[in-house]
Design a protein around this nucleic acid. Structure first.
Length: 258
DNA sequence: ATGGCAATAGAGTATTGA
Protein backbone atom coordinates (compact mmCIF):
# COMPACT_ATOMS: atom_id res chain seq x y z
CA UNK A 1 0.00 0.00 0.00
CA UNK A 2 1.39 3.37 -1.02
CA UNK A 3 0.11 6.37 0.89
CA UNK A 4 0.96 9.97 0.16
CA UNK A 5 0.33 13.56 1.17
CA UNK A 6 0.47 16.77 -0.85
CA UNK A 7 -0.41 20.37 -0.04
CA UNK A 8 -1.63 21.48 -3.47
CA UNK A 9 -2.20 25.17 -2.63
CA UNK A 10 -5.54 25.44 -4.47
CA UNK A 11 -6.99 22.33 -6.08
CA UNK A 12 -8.71 24.51 -8.65
CA UNK A 13 -5.37 25.67 -9.99
CA UNK A 14 -3.53 22.40 -9.38
CA UNK A 15 -6.06 19.84 -10.66
CA UNK A 16 -4.03 19.20 -13.86
CA UNK A 17 -0.93 18.65 -11.73
CA UNK A 18 -2.82 16.30 -9.44
CA UNK A 19 -4.10 14.20 -12.34
CA UNK A 20 -0.71 14.05 -14.01
CA UNK A 21 0.99 13.14 -10.75
CA UNK A 22 -1.49 10.33 -10.07
CA UNK A 23 -0.88 8.91 -13.54
CA UNK A 24 2.83 8.80 -12.86
CA UNK A 25 2.43 7.82 -9.20
CA UNK A 26 -0.65 5.62 -8.84
CA UNK A 27 -0.58 5.59 -5.04
CA UNK A 28 -3.37 3.83 -3.16
CA UNK A 29 -4.17 6.76 -0.89
CA UNK A 30 -3.45 10.47 -1.29
CA UNK A 31 -4.21 13.14 1.30
CA UNK A 32 -4.55 16.70 0.01
CA UNK A 33 -4.36 19.96 1.92
CA UNK A 34 -5.25 23.53 1.01
CA UNK A 35 -7.86 22.57 -1.55
CA UNK A 36 -9.42 26.04 -1.02
CA UNK A 37 -12.72 24.84 -2.46
CA UNK A 38 -16.21 24.66 -1.03
CA UNK A 39 -17.62 21.14 -1.30
CA UNK A 40 -19.99 22.08 -4.12
CA UNK A 41 -16.97 23.01 -6.27
CA UNK A 42 -14.91 19.89 -5.57
CA UNK A 43 -13.85 18.14 -8.82
CA UNK A 44 -15.42 14.78 -7.98
CA UNK A 45 -15.96 13.64 -11.58
CA UNK A 46 -12.35 14.23 -12.63
CA UNK A 47 -11.04 12.33 -9.62
CA UNK A 48 -13.45 9.43 -10.16
CA UNK A 49 -12.35 9.32 -13.79
CA UNK A 50 -8.77 8.98 -12.59
CA UNK A 51 -9.78 5.83 -10.71
CA UNK A 52 -10.13 7.22 -7.21
CA UNK A 53 -12.86 7.53 -4.66
CA UNK A 54 -12.72 10.68 -2.61
CA UNK A 55 -13.85 12.26 0.63
CA UNK A 56 -13.44 15.97 1.20
CA UNK A 57 -14.11 18.79 3.59
CA UNK A 58 -13.63 22.28 2.27
CA UNK A 59 -14.36 25.93 2.79
CA UNK A 60 -14.05 29.11 0.80
CA UNK A 61 -10.61 30.61 0.12
CA UNK A 62 -8.65 28.89 2.87
CA UNK A 63 -7.78 25.41 4.12
CA UNK A 64 -9.73 22.39 2.91
CA UNK A 65 -8.65 18.73 3.00
CA UNK A 66 -9.41 15.62 0.95
CA UNK A 67 -8.59 11.90 0.90
CA UNK A 68 -8.35 10.07 -2.44
CA UNK A 69 -8.36 6.28 -2.44
CA UNK A 70 -8.45 3.42 -4.91
CA UNK A 71 -10.19 1.24 -2.32
CA UNK A 72 -13.48 2.05 -0.58
CA UNK A 73 -13.50 4.79 2.04
CA UNK A 74 -15.52 4.34 5.24
CA UNK A 75 -16.11 5.94 8.65
CA UNK A 76 -15.33 9.46 7.47
CA UNK A 77 -14.94 12.06 10.21
CA UNK A 78 -14.56 15.75 9.48
CA UNK A 79 -12.52 17.76 11.95
CA UNK A 80 -11.34 16.87 15.44
CA UNK A 81 -14.47 16.11 17.48
CA UNK A 82 -12.70 17.50 20.55
CA UNK A 83 -12.00 20.88 18.94
CA UNK A 84 -14.70 23.23 17.75
CA UNK A 85 -13.06 24.65 14.64
CA UNK A 86 -14.64 26.67 11.85
CA UNK A 87 -11.57 25.93 9.70
CA UNK A 88 -11.61 22.70 7.70
CA UNK A 89 -8.26 21.13 8.51
CA UNK A 90 -8.84 17.48 9.39
CA UNK A 91 -10.39 14.53 7.61
CA UNK A 92 -10.25 10.95 8.88
CA UNK A 93 -11.33 7.76 7.13
CA UNK A 94 -10.77 4.01 7.24
CA UNK A 95 -9.34 2.40 4.10
CA UNK A 96 -8.48 -1.29 3.87
CA UNK A 97 -8.38 -1.55 7.66
CA UNK A 98 -6.05 1.42 8.05
CA UNK A 99 -7.15 4.60 9.79
CA UNK A 100 -6.00 7.48 7.59
CA UNK A 101 -5.97 10.99 9.01
CA UNK A 102 -5.36 13.94 6.68
CA UNK A 103 -4.19 16.99 8.62
CA UNK A 104 -3.50 20.59 7.68
CA UNK A 105 -1.89 22.06 10.78
CA UNK A 106 -2.30 25.84 11.17
CA UNK A 107 0.59 27.91 9.91
CA UNK A 108 0.99 30.03 13.03
CA UNK A 109 2.12 33.16 11.16
CA UNK A 110 4.51 34.47 13.85
CA UNK A 111 5.41 33.31 17.34
CA UNK A 112 3.89 36.38 18.99
CA UNK A 113 0.59 36.18 17.09
CA UNK A 114 -2.89 34.92 17.95
CA UNK A 115 -2.50 32.45 15.09
CA UNK A 116 0.49 30.90 16.86
CA UNK A 117 -1.60 30.42 20.00
CA UNK A 118 -4.31 28.86 17.85
CA UNK A 119 -1.75 26.52 16.30
CA UNK A 120 -0.53 25.31 19.69
CA UNK A 121 -4.06 24.90 21.09
CA UNK A 122 -5.09 23.06 17.92
CA UNK A 123 -2.12 20.71 18.23
CA UNK A 124 -2.78 20.06 21.92
CA UNK A 125 -6.34 19.08 21.10
CA UNK A 126 -5.18 16.96 18.16
CA UNK A 127 -2.92 15.11 20.56
CA UNK A 128 -5.86 14.23 22.83
CA UNK A 129 -8.04 13.05 19.97
CA UNK A 130 -5.20 11.12 18.36
CA UNK A 131 -4.72 9.20 21.61
CA UNK A 132 -8.35 8.06 21.31
CA UNK A 133 -7.93 7.14 17.66
CA UNK A 134 -4.78 5.12 18.36
CA UNK A 135 -6.60 3.13 21.04
CA UNK A 136 -9.25 2.22 18.47
CA UNK A 137 -7.02 1.71 15.43
CA UNK A 138 -3.74 -0.18 15.69
CA UNK A 139 -3.09 0.60 12.04
CA UNK A 140 -3.08 4.39 11.83
CA UNK A 141 -1.32 6.91 9.63
CA UNK A 142 -1.58 10.67 10.00
CA UNK A 143 -0.37 12.46 6.91
CA UNK A 144 -0.26 16.10 6.08
CA UNK A 145 1.22 19.55 6.20
CA UNK A 146 2.35 19.92 9.82
CA UNK A 147 3.87 23.35 9.33
CA UNK A 148 6.66 22.23 11.65
CA UNK A 149 10.25 21.35 10.77
CA UNK A 150 11.08 18.63 13.32
CA UNK A 151 14.82 19.29 13.62
CA UNK A 152 17.48 21.68 12.42
CA UNK A 153 18.50 19.20 9.71
CA UNK A 154 15.05 19.77 8.21
CA UNK A 155 15.83 23.48 7.73
CA UNK A 156 18.02 24.97 4.99
CA UNK A 157 19.40 27.65 7.31
CA UNK A 158 18.80 26.76 10.96
CA UNK A 159 20.37 30.00 12.22
CA UNK A 160 18.08 32.13 10.07
CA UNK A 161 15.03 30.17 11.21
CA UNK A 162 15.99 29.72 14.87
CA UNK A 163 13.00 30.45 17.08
CA UNK A 164 10.85 31.43 14.09
CA UNK A 165 7.44 30.03 13.40
CA UNK A 166 7.63 26.49 11.92
CA UNK A 167 10.85 25.90 13.89
CA UNK A 168 10.14 27.14 17.41
CA UNK A 169 10.67 24.96 20.46
CA UNK A 170 6.98 24.91 21.38
CA UNK A 171 5.97 23.74 17.92
CA UNK A 172 8.64 21.06 17.91
CA UNK A 173 7.55 19.98 21.39
CA UNK A 174 3.98 19.68 20.13
CA UNK A 175 5.12 17.51 17.22
CA UNK A 176 7.19 15.40 19.59
CA UNK A 177 4.08 15.07 21.74
CA UNK A 178 2.29 13.43 18.83
CA UNK A 179 5.25 11.15 18.23
CA UNK A 180 5.25 10.25 21.93
CA UNK A 181 1.79 8.75 21.47
CA UNK A 182 3.57 5.94 19.63
CA UNK A 183 3.99 7.37 16.15
CA UNK A 184 7.04 7.34 13.90
CA UNK A 185 8.19 9.87 11.31
CA UNK A 186 8.36 7.47 8.37
CA UNK A 187 10.86 9.64 6.51
CA UNK A 188 13.50 9.07 9.19
CA UNK A 189 13.13 5.31 9.15
CA UNK A 190 15.43 5.37 6.15
CA UNK A 191 18.68 6.87 5.05
CA UNK A 192 17.90 10.14 3.27
CA UNK A 193 19.90 12.67 1.34
CA UNK A 194 21.06 15.69 3.32
CA UNK A 195 19.01 18.83 2.76
CA UNK A 196 15.78 16.97 2.00
CA UNK A 197 12.84 19.38 2.11
CA UNK A 198 9.15 19.34 1.20
CA UNK A 199 8.41 23.07 0.89
CA UNK A 200 10.23 25.95 -0.79
CA UNK A 201 9.18 29.59 -0.84
CA UNK A 202 8.02 30.90 -4.21
CA UNK A 203 10.32 33.88 -3.82
CA UNK A 204 14.04 34.38 -4.32
CA UNK A 205 14.45 31.24 -6.45
CA UNK A 206 14.22 29.27 -3.23
CA UNK A 207 13.58 25.94 -4.95
CA UNK A 208 16.48 26.25 -7.34
CA UNK A 209 18.72 27.17 -4.42
CA UNK A 210 17.14 24.41 -2.32
CA UNK A 211 16.30 26.87 0.44
CA UNK A 212 13.49 24.78 1.90
CA UNK A 213 11.98 23.19 4.96
CA UNK A 214 10.71 19.67 5.62
CA UNK A 215 7.27 20.33 7.06
CA UNK A 216 5.10 17.68 5.37
CA UNK A 217 5.16 14.38 7.19
CA UNK A 218 3.72 10.88 7.32
CA UNK A 219 3.51 9.62 10.89
CA UNK A 220 2.80 5.91 11.38
CA UNK A 221 1.56 3.84 14.29
CA UNK A 222 3.87 1.03 15.45
CA UNK A 223 1.98 -1.61 13.44
CA UNK A 224 2.46 0.36 10.22
CA UNK A 225 5.98 1.60 10.96
CA UNK A 226 7.08 -2.02 11.27
CA UNK A 227 5.85 -2.68 7.74
CA UNK A 228 7.06 0.56 6.17
CA UNK A 229 9.65 -0.20 3.50
CA UNK A 230 10.19 3.25 1.96
CA UNK A 231 9.48 6.95 2.35
CA UNK A 232 10.43 9.64 -0.12
CA UNK A 233 9.74 13.22 -1.13
CA UNK A 234 8.94 13.65 -4.83
CA UNK A 235 10.48 16.94 -5.91
CA UNK A 236 9.44 16.50 -9.55
CA UNK A 237 6.12 18.39 -9.52
CA UNK A 238 7.77 21.35 -7.81
CA UNK A 239 9.62 21.84 -11.13
CA UNK A 240 6.47 21.91 -13.24
CA UNK A 241 4.89 25.09 -14.58
CA UNK A 242 2.90 26.97 -11.94
CA UNK A 243 3.68 24.50 -9.15
CA UNK A 244 2.42 24.15 -5.62
CA UNK A 245 5.08 25.35 -3.19
CA UNK A 246 4.95 21.89 -1.53
CA UNK A 247 6.17 18.54 -2.84
CA UNK A 248 4.35 15.24 -2.25
CA UNK A 249 5.62 12.73 0.32
CA UNK A 250 5.04 9.01 -0.28
CA UNK A 251 5.35 6.07 2.12
CA UNK A 252 5.19 2.40 1.18
CA UNK A 253 3.55 0.00 3.63
CA UNK A 254 4.12 -3.70 3.01
CA UNK A 255 1.33 -6.22 3.21
CA UNK A 256 0.80 -7.69 6.67
CA UNK A 257 1.94 -11.30 7.03
CA UNK A 258 -0.96 -13.67 6.44
C1' DA B 1 14.98 46.39 7.67
C1' DT B 2 11.83 45.22 4.06
C1' DG B 3 9.85 42.65 0.50
C1' DG B 4 10.42 39.37 -2.58
C1' DC B 5 5.76 35.12 -4.93
C1' DA B 6 1.29 33.01 -5.35
C1' DA B 7 -3.76 32.38 -4.63
C1' DT B 8 -8.19 34.37 -3.39
C1' DA B 9 -11.88 37.80 -3.33
C1' DG B 10 -13.40 41.00 -6.15
C1' DA B 11 -12.46 45.20 -8.60
C1' DG B 12 -7.77 48.25 -5.88
C1' DT B 13 -5.69 46.25 -2.84
C1' DA B 14 -5.79 43.31 1.54
C1' DT B 15 -5.10 38.81 3.58
C1' DT B 16 -2.80 34.60 4.11
C1' DG B 17 0.62 31.41 3.47
C1' DA B 18 5.46 29.38 5.49
Amino acid sequence: MKIATWNVNSLKVRLPHLLQWLQENPVDVLCLQETKLTDDKFPVAEIHAAGYQVAFSGQKTYNGVAILSKLPISDVVKNNPRYDDAQQRILAATIDGVRIICAYVPNGQAVDSDKYDYKLAWLASLNEWLADELREHAQLAILGDYNIAPEDRDVHDPAEWAGQVLCSDKERAALNGLIALGLTDSFRLFEQADKSYSWWDYRQLAFRRNRGLRIDHILLSAALAGRCSACAIDRAPRKWEQPSDHAPVIATIDQAAA
